[in-house]
Nucleic acid binder design. Structure first.
Length: 269
DNA sequence: CTCTATGTTTAATT
DNA sequence: GAATTAAACATAGA
């Protein structure tokens, strides 16, 4: 589920659930998700701490604790944080749990569920390299068209590949990139450095439009799969383009499935 | 059985 | 070196 909008929704929920709460227990036995930590160091870093802030940059979540410890969470492909009662049984594909108490004494917990286990959970005192390497976040920092143009001009990769580069813009995933390029009427295979300044402006607007739609669609979702009819071209290979009716094409760019309209999305070069 | 999947990292190749 | 491309990771669902 993790596109930028999903991670932001989860951030908001975690903030509400955990902000100001004290961690009473923290457990995970999944060394793949915890790497390079051990289950014991994970527990020791968190128990007794109070959550001061839940932040996000791109697809990374960052919980800031009262002793300066930070818990970084990446959801990978199938990760999801779910609120539960403290005594609720272990969920299917539950990989970690954090139990907490509030001032009023009420206790509950959040569970990290991740079937494919591509996600990460890292408790550290310092920022991690993955977080530091992130470019500006479209929601936190906005999109600076000038800076984006400079970054895109530096590469001859396909523009879709470039906008998904987390150091250029943090949080743009396959779906957002596909949808934004459709909105902008730009062929995803276009060379990144072939876009005009106007193209970059249009692309930035396309990203905002796609992001806005995604946020709206996800706001009410409670499960990882509540999202279908909100996309214009993603997952719609062979279906008519909503703009001109041509069949949506399906190709592979950078190893990722890409759908686009061959007639209204124009190739720059 | 085969194919696909919202993401990222690493190995191999050009 | 840089830049691309393919493979790998692990699991579920169609």
């Amino acid at each position: 589920m993790p596109e930028l909008a999903d991670v932001e929704i989860i951030r908001q929920r975690l903030e509400k659930a955990l902000g100001g709460a004290t961690i009473t227990a923290a457990q995970s036995n999944d060394r793949r998700i915890l790497r390079p930590q051990t289950p014991l160091s994970f527990t020791r870093a968190l128990v007794g701490r109070t959550v001061e802030e839940v932040g996000r940059s791109g697809k990374w979540l960052r919980l800031e604790l009262d002793d300066g410890t930070r818990l970084f969470s990446h959801l990978g492909m199938t990760g999801w944080w779910v609120e539960h009662e403290r005594d609720d049984p272990k969920q299917k594909a539950e990989r970690a749990r954090i139990d907490f108490a509030r001032d009023d004494g009420r206790e509950s917990s959040v569970r990290y569920v991740d079937s494919r286990r591509f996600g990460r959970l890292i408790a550290a005192k310092d920022e991690i390299p993955e977080w530091i390497a992130l470019g500006p976040d479209p929601l936190v920092d906005g999109i600076d068209v000038k800076k984006l143009a400079v970054a895109l001009a530096r590469s001859r990769r396909a523009v879709k590949d470039a906008v998904m580069d987390q150091s250029i813009l943090a949080g743009i995933g396959n779906i957002l990139a596909i949808e934004a390029l459709w909105h902008a009427r730009i062929d995803p295979r276009s060379s990144s450095d072939a876009l005009s300044r106007a193209d970059v402006g249009t692309l930035a607007r396309g990203l905002k439009t796609a992001l806005r739609r995604e946020l709206k669609a996800r706001a009410g979702a409670t499960r990882p799969d509540e999202w279908q009819d909100v996309f214009s071209v993603y997952g719609r290979a062979g279906a008519p383009c909503p703009r001109d009716g041509s069949p949506i094409a399906r190709i592979v760019i950078g190893g990722r499935t890409t759908t686009f309209c061959r007639t209204c999305q124009i190739r720059r070069s």
